[in-house]
Every structure is written in structure tokens, then in C-alpha cells.
Amino acid sequence: MIEPIPYVIAITALNAIDSPGPGLAVIRALREGLGTGLRIIGLCYESLEPGIYLHGQVDKTYQIPYPTAGAGPLLERLQYVHEKEKLDLVIPNFDSELYNFIKISVDLNKLGIKTFLPSHKQLEIREKINLAKFGKKHNLLVPEDRIIFKADELEKVAADLGYPLVVKGKYYEASVVHTLEQASKAFSLLSVKWGLPVIAQKFVKGTEINIAALGDGKGNAISVIPMRKLYITDKGKAWAGVTLEDNTLLDLGRDFIKATHWKGGCELEIMKDAAGKLFIMEINPRFPAWVYLTAAAGQNQPAALVKMAFGELVEPFDSYQPGKMFVRYAWDHITDITEFQQISALGEL
């Protein structure tokens, strides 16, 4: 039987949309792993993030300032939330908000709010613009890339790397292009949306596999779960996937955690080519949206993170179920316009 633990935990990324944030999956795993005493406080950016309205999952939600507002306004807002809710822990789940959360983690700790996050340095080494260098340093395969600041660099880059070419935004989104015209168009769109530089990466054909991992910050991988995408949306997201049993993937996850001393959850996006080579395409510095599958397969990563955040010694998991599958679905949740009104006008619901 699970003993109820009366923690109050704040969670971001409640946007369970077609490119979903991990928030609801993290909450589901925590509720399953930590019992009924848990109180979940949602932290949202927009009024239509579905998690806000799912009161069975999220007990109360507060709107927080966008990352571009900086760390100060975020801390101020969290102080307000803390006064109301007496937060024990906050788990941010968006790449773009992590910098600020890490920056204020010492202040949060002083308030009694724990975090379990990577450092700014750890965050930086896995950034898209640094990934190839990181791979080279630690003997991990990363497709060759070029960092581009001007569109007229594309022609030479395409000649070096060949087509098809993957043009990637600094933070999110990527396009596979086959001509210079397509490459220029992708460069313009991505640089306007996510800023400069843009990354051009050599295309690798293969099977898309993701690895969800949890590090203790001392070099130990507490959990590593590989998942093959079975159904991929037009945004490249896994809509269905299955856990795999493959020691080379587990070793890769462990090697990354060991090399970085990663603290917290992360996701390695892997391309396995026809020869079985494993290329790291991206490393996301937080739990993936499919993280509930880790709990379903026997390694509840979010619950293990909470235990470590509260100082518990957590031993690395040693087994999980391969062949455990998830299929995502869409559900029209019905609510009243007054709820929308309240979160929009007052910033809390």
C-alpha cells in the first residue's frame, strides 16, 4: 500500500495539446507513485492550457510570467503562490523556463521550496549549438552540424553536409530540406521565431528512439527507459510508443548521465541507423511528455525525483518491462466559461 505523503508540489507545462508539455504526465506519475495526500499546484502561462481545468489532476493553478520577463518576476510570483499554498517542491518542465528556475533555485530553497535541477553549465553543454562539441568530447555520436548566423552561409553548408539537410531552430522545431530554396525559407522562419543562430545538421536516416533518464547529480543514472516511437505526428512527436530492451541504449543513457553528472530528468532523442549506430539528435533538459510510460514500465522517474529532492537515497532501478506501450489520445474536456474567465482575469483557478 502507498502511504500518503502530504507534499505540495508545483508543476509547469500543463499544455496537453498536440505537441504536449510533460506536466500532466509528471502529475499522473506522481499521483500514482506518492499516493493520495499529494496536492498539485499547476503553474501555467496561458489561460487555455488544458491541465488548468482538470481538477482531478491539478488542485489549483496559478499563472506565472513568461520566461522573457526574467527571473525576478518569476520569484516574486512564486513567493505569492508559496504564501497561499506552502509549496514543498517545484518541478519545471519546459526547456525555455529552466534557466530562470535554476537562477532562483537558491532563493526558493531559502523559502523552503525544493528543486532538483541541472546547473546552468549542464543546461548549456547539451544545447543544440554545443551538442556536436559535447559528443566529440565524450565519444558520443552526434550528426555533424554547422551553426549559421546568415542565410548566405547555407549554400556552402549544404555543399559540405549534403541534402537532405535538417535546419533546426535554436530552441524548438526543425525542417528537413532538399534544396537551397527550402533551406533559405526554413532559415528565415526559424530565425524569426526562435532567434539566431540556426543549426544545420546532417540528415541521418533511421529509427527514432527516445530515452527518458533520471540522474542523481553525482553521475549515477537512477533510471533509463528507452522508447521507440510507433506513431509520429506531423510535429515529430510520439503519439504512440513502446519500451525497448536494448543494452546499447541503456548504456548510452548511463554514459550521458555519467559524463554530465546530470541532475534531474532528461530525454535523449536518438536516431538508430541501418548499421545500428546510435546518433544523439537532441538532449532535452527535462522529463519528456511520455514520462508516464516510465512509471507504467516499472520505473517511476518523477516519483524518484521527488524522493531525491527530499534527500532520500534512491538506488538505481534495475529492471523494467519492455513491450509496455502508450497510445496518446485527445479528449474534449467540458468546463464552464466562468472558469476560463477566472483564470484569465485573476490568474488563478
Binding site: I209, R228, G241, T243, L244, E245, D246
Partner: peptide, 18 residues
């Protein structure tokens, strides 16, 4: 060794997900 099979002919390779 790790290939999963069922009596109705379903085969699953847990190493590749096929």
C-alpha cells in the same frame, strides 16, 4: 532469446520495437 511470441502468431522484438 528475448523475442516474445504468442499462440495467435504475434511476434514482438523488444530490442527494436518491431
Amino acid at each position: 532469446k528475448n523475442i516474445a511470441t504468442s499462440e495467435n502468431g504475434f511476434i514482438f522484438n523488444p530490442s527494436t520495437g518491431d
